[in-house]
């Protein structure tokens, strides 16, 4: 009898390990998604096991978005990338040709399963009374932000302020693409540039990344206001206390879309295409969306957004495509060497 059970057990173990495949995925991501993907990976592994019987282990790599993209270009074998801005994935497609250039059309919503935006974190009671983008340039306000040349969120913040001024000047952002308003648009662009110049004059610390600037604001006590990701601001309040900080959501901001993509060359080589595709699709599932919402990323799914609506203040959002003509153009005009960011800092 005992022999029978032993044989049965051994057979069960053997057959399980023979039939169930073991997959290993590498997700190369940016800095603030650490907590999000820790939870999501566990949920996905469970879901995939239940659906197919196969085991999946997802390894994570985090760092500044641009640096991570660089690593993938240099040969880091990522099955999927989940980065802070489309420009970084576009660069991977363009430089190393390991995924098609139309990657962003392969998944719904511009391949961004969750979105975020740029908000202000201020000290409790909002002593400098900062509520709008214009309040940032009031005399005596000291700003903490990340460096637009090295950080993804820093670029989103810069563009958010710029777009907010355009909106205020023009009333309707559609005028940007209407030739009959050319003069008005040019004047508004000039205002936005002057505004941005003032903002960076009042920046006290430009940290190299999103987490670093949170640290400067929270732990080093620098500055009156921090410009950062909405999710990063919530995390700071949760970690360091709602009695010390509060989040101010400006009336208008940018729709930050951190996209995800499959790296075709890698998944074909590692034979992980099916599981990697399932992984990215699962981000759009109710459970994936719920995990994103719990980590303060705005879910795309309307029902789940409704459920978590207390976490996400109403804010008018504009997209980078509408206002800046996409990442390639924005990057070239504003952040490349000799671009507007360099020009306004010139002495």
């Amino acid at each position: 009898m005992r022999t029978f059970f032993t044989t049965l057990t051994v057979a069960a173990i053997l057959s399980a390990s023979l039939l169930a495949a073991d997959f290993k995925l590498l997700n190369v991501s940016y800095d603030p998604t650490r907590e999000l993907y820790e939870q999501f990976n566990a949920a996905f592994a469970k879901h995939y096991k239940a659906a197919t019987g196969d085991n999946v282990t997802v390894n994570q790599s985090h760092g500044g978005s641009g640096g991570q993209a660089n690593a993938v270009i240099e040969g880091l074998e990522a099955d999927v990338v989940t980065l802070a801005l489309a420009y970084d994935i576009e660069s991977i497609a363009e430089k190393s040709k390991i995924l098609p250039t139309e990657w962003q059309k392969r998944l719904p919503n511009n391949s961004t399963p969750y979105t975020s935006t740029v908000v202000f974190l201020v000290r409790k009671g909002n002593p400098k009374n900062i509520k709008t983008w214009n309040d940032l340039v009031k005399p005596g306000v000291s700003i903490i932000a990340a460096h637009p040349k090295t950080s993804g969120v820093a670029r989103w913040s810069y563009l958010a302020g710029w777009g907010a001024v355009l909106k205020q000047e023009l009333g309707d952002l559609k005028k940007l693409n209407d030739p009959q308003y050319d003069k008005e648009v040019a004047a508004a662009q000039k205002k936005a540039r002057d505004y941005t110049l003032k903002v960076y004059k009042q920046v006290k610390v430009l940290d190299s990344g999103a987490r670093g600037s949170t640290q400067s604001f929270v732990q080093r006590g620098q500055g009156d206001v921090l410009l950062n990701w909405e999710n990063e601001a919530y995390l700071a309040v949760r970690e360091y206390g709602a009695d010390k900080y509060e989040i101010v959501v400006p009336p208008i901001s940018i729709l930050a879309e951190p996209p995800v993509a499959l790296i075709d060359k890698v998944v074909d080589k590692k034979k992980t295409r099916a599981v990697a595709e399932a992984y990215l699709k699962y981000l759009y599932s109710p459970e994936g969306q719920e995990i994103a919402a719990r980590n303060f990323y705005r879910p795309r799914d309307a029902k789940i957004l409704e459920k978590y609506k207390n976490n996400f203040a109403k804010v008018e959002l504009f997209t980078i495509d509408d206002v800046f003509g996409g990442w390639q153009k924005a990057q070239k005009e504003h952040f490349s060497d000799g671009g507007v960011f360099d020009q306004i800092n010139t002495r």
Binding site: G64, G67, N70, H147, K149, L206, S208, S336, D342, N345
Partner: peptide, 18 residues
Amino acid sequence: PYETEITSLLIVAKLQQY
């Protein structure tokens, strides 16, 4: 910029722009 940027930071900034 111009005040407390060290050269290695500019090297990293350039790498970020590919």
